[in-house]
Nucleic acid binder design. Structure first.
Length: 901
RNA sequence: GCCGAUGUGGCGAAAUGGCAGACGCAACGGACUUAAAAUCCGUUGGGCUUUAAACGGCCCGUGCCGGUUCGAGUCCGGCCAUCGGCACCA
């Protein structure tokens, strides 16, 4: 600890309070049915995004969101809520494993150390987590249920008729494996040789791995996939009711990428011409297009190079070129593909197809600007009205035919907007939208096409060739996979000496020969799950973390994830309702609380259910949040959860920059270490500064001077109530007295309650702190300070600076017999609107909108009085002399605006 | 290229369409002190102006251009800059 003299003795009491909170388990929230649970209180679930306990420890970005949620948690408790405010560790994953490979230390060891470090750092900041609910994804008691959830996914399918997941037993088709929500497929994957694993698309940034920035190449491999695409529609539609930033919703919508259009079938011209008498029929190629109205303008077709039909249609003489092109594109790394995107490439297959609209013979090409994974992997190219097709057509000299007339004066060639159909007999003269409908119907009648919807979203690549992850509860027998029984969970990874990647793509678990042999006939799956798995459902586990019978108890889940006034909240596992067992006095209390806890100006809507407030960084906008929603919906469909969406309200905290206004990074040397800040200024100052910096959601730079300023504010609070004697000991100041506050003090007290309450509700913590600064400034240097005003201040400040306020409260309580003696058990104060009204208000007098004078009048003076008084002001009378008054605008208690010529 | 966010003093910021800059930082001045630190009090957007000095008075000012309005940081249209996301998705 620094030898510098502290502005106030936080070092004497911060750890004391942290210890007391721990000893008393003050922030433990019991579950329904448990000792100490109060069913009369409404619930509030406030959650931080699951941290990965890295070796570097906390940085100042973590506690920004954590402090915000902690303020809300402490505030909501004082408002009479049962608050669920948990913390845990997303501890599987690559960094621990990479570190282990480098140092030879088992990832379990480093994980344990890192968790211990994170936890002690969080405790030093004084967060009010319910540590009894701590979970860790690498704990077998946790991942047994991650594996169990995988089994539920594996053992179900998406029924398009009911639009939900159902047990696989309800599937009537011949091959259940083809519809499971978890399935195995040979897919081109992002293979990262350096990391020795495949990566999800989302983990590849600019052709390099997100972790470590290593090169990534495309390579086909057998992988586990989760059928998230089945939920594409619901994942888009059900965003609607969520209280999330619009930007994040949009990001998810764009990621899912829904587009409406049509599938159109083109018959290819057999090649070579079939000899008479054979049954050979030339294949059809189906394309997806969002603009079927441009069908007449389709002057060629393009297949993805890997498209399976290519083999059937290529002519003899084009084979060498096609083969060469296919090899070239297959070799391209992700990076090259993006880099070379500017220049279009492709080769002619030698084959032709018939345009179903005009029976024209059009050439079929292959080109890597058409992706196998989207739509049907084939397109009809309309160069006149598609930028990419136009570029390609120009390069290879293919015909360009205009079929849409722009409404404005735009260039017709290259016009991609809506216009009017031309050169298209079936739909000539129709506006694009109508033309699309008509031509789609026309195609449907002839069996040549149909309406269709496509998504950019791909199925979720769910396996990793790593060691430090959840093993799959799957075994293989004679080339087929099957699930293990629930009783066999958890499947623990084998204790491996050598967990380095094999380099071949075979997972490290393959090295554990004994472990792999499940039985004489069956071998274990050797892939592991990706890091997302554990973080997909941790918020559910927090509701009932110790349950060893279920992944979450039904009653606990319904209570914590339920909506406000939710009937389900009152029922237990067996569906019995509880009210009849409640005593009469409890019922009365319940209604009391219902009315007294209706919150004014609340930004928290009556929750439809789920986590009531979820705060974290934007980096999880699509990945974690989409995956978690998907799992949640599957579990909901299967009847395991009570609500269809996990996170009702989402808020993103902004990034904290270094003092130099740059992103914090080791190389810039501008990283701020929370431990050092706390050593110097204390946890309360650290918390308050994090909140005082600016709006939570905004990006903002750190400033040590700013921390100092906030620390000075807390010191002023301390000295408001405490005096230091000659020998440097602090004692309660004699200024604090049992006197009634005067009128202006009372007004300030109530104005402060109002502002702080409203600002906490709207997460405007910076302005809440400003108001408390104003309050403290006003009470500084008074000879007598009413103790009631100080008590109110301490309660309001408590969520922000819990240690300081607890200490001061204890001292005040001892002297003035304030009850209860622990500030955390105080109720949040109400304010009296009547006390905020002034007798007199100062209003502004304007001439033509410009401020010219001020005027003191009685509050709520009528318009006529205001007008007369304003015009009578010497300054005003002087300025308007000789001018015509055209109008006088009067806003009561605000202003008078005289409009003259 | 497309989508989104942001733009206010020297700095972080504040402002239901109604006195722009609350609060904090920095700076300056004062009190206290042998001195410094700490603390407390005060000044502090820019320009012009009245005056012996002060109090005053006037003009400009929320990225740029335009519009709506009695009145715009706030609403509307267009542009510029910075940051973030997506990027051959047919």
């Amino acid at each position: 600890m620094s030898a510098r003299r502290k502005p106030y003795p936080f070092d004497r009491f911060e750890s004391k309070w942290q210890r007391l909170w721990d000893e008393r388990q003050l922030f433990h929230a019991p579950n329904p049915g448990e000792k100490g649970f109060d069913a009369a209180k409404p619930k509030f679930y406030v959650l931080d995004m699951f941290p990965y306990p890295s070796g570097a420890g906390l940085h100042v970005g973590h506690p920004e969101g954590y402090t915000a949620t902690d303020i809300i948690a402490r505030y909501k408790r004082m408002r009479g809520f049962n608050v669920l405010h948990p913390m845990g560790w997303d501890a599987f994953g690559l960094p621990a494993e990479q570190y282990a490979i480098k140092t030879g230390q088992h990832p379990a060891v480093t994980t344990r150390e890192n968790v211990a470090k994170f936890k002690s750092q969080l405790k030093r900041i004084g967060f009010s987590y319910d540590w009894q609910r701590e979970v860790n994804t690498t704990d077998p008691r946790y991942y047994t249920w991650t594996q169990w959830i995988f089994l539920q996914i594996y053992n179900s399918w998406f029924n398009p008729e009911t639009n939900k997941a159902e047990p696989i037993s309800t599937y009537r088709g011949a091959d259940p494996d083809s519809v499971r929500l978890a399935y195995v497929a040979d897919v081109p994957v992002n293979w990262c040789p350096e990391l020795g694993t495949v990566l999800a698309n989302e983990e590849v940034i600019d052709g390099k791995s997100e972790i470590g920035s290593f090169p990534v190449v495309r390579r086909p491999m057998r992988q586990w996939m989760l059928r998230i695409t089945a939920y594409a529609e619901r994942l888009i539609n059900e965003l609607e009711g969520l209280d999330w930033p619009e930007g994040i919703k949009l990001l998810q919508r764009n990621w899912i990428g829904r587009s409406e259009g049509a599938e159109v079938s083109f018959q290819t011209i057999a090649n070579p011409e079939p000899s008479p008498g054979t049954h050979f029929r030339s294949p059809w190629i189906t394309v997806f297009t969002t603009r079927p109205d441009t069908l007449y303008g389709a002057t060629y077709m393009v297949l993805a190079p890997e498209h399976s039909l290519v083999d059937l249609i290529v002519t003899e003489e084009q084979w060498p070129a096609v083969r060469e092109y296919r090899e070239r594109t297959a070799r391209k790394s992700e990076l090259e593909r993006t880099d070379l995107a500017k220049e279009k490439t492709g080769v002619f297959t030698g084959a032709f197809a018939i345009n179903p609209a005009n029976d024209e013979k059009i050439p079929i090409w292959i080109a890597d600007y058409v992706l196998l994974g989207y739509g049907t992997g084939a397109i009809m190219a309309v160069p006149a009205h598609d930028e990419r097709d136009l570029e390609f057509a120009r390069k290879f000299d293919l015909p360009i035919r205009q079929v849409v007339r722009p409404l404005g004066s735009e260039d017709a060639i290259g016009f991609t907007g809506d216009g009017v159909a031309i050169n298209s007999p079936v739909i000539d003269g129709l506006p694009s939208r109508e033309a699309i409908r008509k031509i789609t119907a026309w195609l449907e009648e002839r069996g040549l096409g149909k309406r269709s919807i496509n998504y950019k979203l791909r199925d979720w690549l769910f396996s990793r060739q790593r060691y430090w992850g959840e093993p799959f509860p799957i075994v293989w027998e004679s080339g087929k996979h099957r699930s293990l029984a629930e009783a066999e969970l958890p499947v623990m990874p084998p204790p491996l000496e050598d967990y380095k990647p094999t380099g071949t793509g075979e997972p490290p678990l393959a090295k554990a020969k004994d472990w792999i042999r499940y039985s004489d006939k069956a071998t274990r799956e050797t892939n592991v799950m990706p890091q997302w798995a554990g973080s997909c459902w941790y918020y559910i586990r927090f509701c009932d973390p110790g349950n060893d019978q279920r992944f979450v108890g039904g009653e606990a889940e319904r209570y914590w994830m339920g909506g406000e006034n939710d009937e389900a909240r009152m029922s237990n596992d067996e569906g019995r309702t509880k009210p009849e067992t409640r005593k009469a006095d409890e019922v009365i209390r319940h209604s009391d609380i219902d009315s007294s806890f209706v919150i004014r100006h609340s930004s928290f809507p009556r929750a439809p259910g789920g986590v009531d407030l979820y705060i974290g960084g934007t980096e999880h906008a699509v990945l974690h949040l989409l995956y978690a929603r998907f799992w949640h919906k599957v579990l909901f469909d299967l009847g395991y959860l009570s609500k269809p969406e996990p996170f009702q309200r989402l808020v993103n905290q902004g990034i904290i920059l270094g003092e130099d206004n740059q992103k914090m990074s080791k190389s810039r040397g501008n990283i701020v270490n929370p431990d050092e800040v706390i050593d110097e200024y204390g946890a309360d100052a650290f918390r308050c500064y994090e909140m005082f910096m600016g709006p939570l959601e905004q990006m903002k730079p750190w400033s040590m001077r700013g921390v100092e300023g906030v620390s000075r504010f807390l010191a002023r609070v301390w000295r408001l109530m405490m005096d230091e004697n000659q020998s440097g000991e602090w004692g309660l100041s004699p200024r604090i007295q049992e006197i009634a506050p005067d009128k202006s003090q009372l007004k300030l007290v109530h104005a402060t309650i109002k502002k702080v309450t409203e600002d906490i509700e709207s997460l405007s913590f910076n302005t809440a702190i400003s108001q408390m600064m104003v309050f403290v400034n006003a009470f500084t240097n008074l000879e007598k300070i009413p103790v009631t005003a100080m008590c109110t201040l301490l309660v309001l400040l408590n969520p922000f600076a819990p240690h300081l306020t607890s200490e001061l409260w204890e001292i005040l309580a001892a002297k003035f017999q304030v009850e209860p003696a622990d500030i955390a058990q105080q109720t949040w104060p109400d304010y009296d609107e009547a006390l905020l009204i002034e007798d007199e208000v100062e209003i502004v007098v304007q001439i033509n909108g410009k401020m010219r004078a001020r005027l003191k009048v009685a509050t709520d003076a009528n318009e006529e009085t205001l007008k007369t008084a304003a015009l009578a002001l010497p300054k005003i009378a002087e300025s308007i002399a000789g001018k015509e008054i055209r109008k006088v605008v009067i806003v009561p208690n605000k202003l008078v605006n005289v409009v003259t010529n």
